[in-house]
């Protein structure tokens, strides 16, 4: 189905069922948050998994997407779907510029450049109080009416919108990875000098993946802004960039479903471990260390390895 392998189709069916059942069993806001972070993590995984680039600045696109959507919906009065589209576009646009700069460097230097560029965005967000609300963030964003007609005030209505965006994101990521473009990108990760020697301008492919990852981040940030009704500096900060990398590694780098599981675990930890206060970060760190030591492929990565099939 849609080019998914049999095992992947089963996993997708399970995922759809979980998405349908979840709001009846869990607090819908938390599940929506999971889905937003999952979109974010799937995009980040495109960079980390398919071309092997570690970005430490993905929050820049996530936060910008949130700010743009929040601002346009609250201050300009756009409908929520336009806000999300604009948020995604803003993320992709920023990703085009930053990607063009960052892909000129490799490995740790690439990671450092992405981090530095993201910090610029962070401090710009601190200063640009007219747009971002500075320390206060953009608060109390009313979700408005989808297409100007369907009110999203109720969490269940909003849930349907987020679920559709999320599932579309899963299908889209799978398609990117399994497209002719995805094949080229995979080969670039395997052996970049060889791809150059075959006449491929590899930087352009890496740049394209960077833009796609930023697009996902922008859409995710914008959708989360609509769900929560608030965008703050933490959305654009380095901790969020680190968190999304953690999600990808925990779930399984280079897998379709891993980032989703990773996002669910990290968000659940933040939510259910909230009573521990600042200890959440310590616990997350410990879990991350156990993950790296015990199952390096991540949860879904490990399952896929055992089943000898891509997931």
């Amino acid at each position: 189905m849609l080019g998914f392998s049999r095992t992947q189709s089963v996993a997708l069916a399970v995922l759809v069922l979980v998405v349908i059942a979840a709001p009846f069993l869990l607090y819908p806001i938390v599940v929506m948050q999971v889905m937003c972070y999952a979109i974010f993590a799937m995009g980040t995984n495109l960079l980390m998994g398919s071309v092997g680039l570690l970005s430490l600045g993905q929050a820049a696109y996530f936060g910008l997407g949130g700010y743009v959507a929040g601002y346009l919906v609250q201050s300009v009065g756009l409908t929520p779907e336009l806000g999300i589209i604009a948020g995604g576009a803003a993320g992709a646009l920023l990703g085009t510029g930053f990607g063009w700069l960052a892909i000129r460097r490799q490995d740790i230097y690439f990671a450092m450049v992405t981090l530095a560029l993201a910090q610029i965005v962070y401090f710009a967000a601190v200063q640009a109080t007219g747009f971002t609300g500075g320390e206060n963030g953009i608060q109390g964003i009313a979700r408005g009416d989808l297409f100007g007609h369907l009110p999203l005030k109720s969490d269940h209505a909003m849930y349907v919108v987020v679920a559709v965006i999320f599932l579309a994101g899963v299908v889209f990521v799978h398609r990117i990875v399994n497209s002719p473009f995805g094949q080229v990108v995979k080969a670039v990760r395997d052996n970049e000098p060889r791809m150059i020697s075959l006449g491929y301008r590899t930087d352009a492919y890496k740049g394209m993946i960077f833009v796609l990852a930023a697009l996902f981040a922008g859409v995710a940030g914008a959708t989360k802004a609509m769900v929560m009704g608030i965008v703050t500096l933490s959305d654009v900060g380095a901790t969020t960039s680190g968190l999304v990398v953690l999600m990808v590694l925990l779930g399984g780098i280079g897998t379709i479903f891993g980032p989703i599981v990773g996002a669910a675990i990290v968000v659940a930890m933040q939510y259910y471990l909230a009573p521990f206060g600042a200890w959440v970060i310590v616990i997350q760190g410990a879990i991350f260390m156990v993950c790296v030591l015990v199952f390096r492929r991540g949860i879904i990565g490990e399952v896929a390895f055992r089943l000898r099939t891509p997931l």
Binding site: G3, R175, S179, F181, L198, Y200
Partner: peptide, 21 residues
Amino acid sequence: RIALQRDRGGSFDFWRSSDSL
């Protein structure tokens, strides 16, 4: 195939299925 597909033009088509290869 990676070498063969280089000159197909539009190798940035991330929306198309790899079945087209």
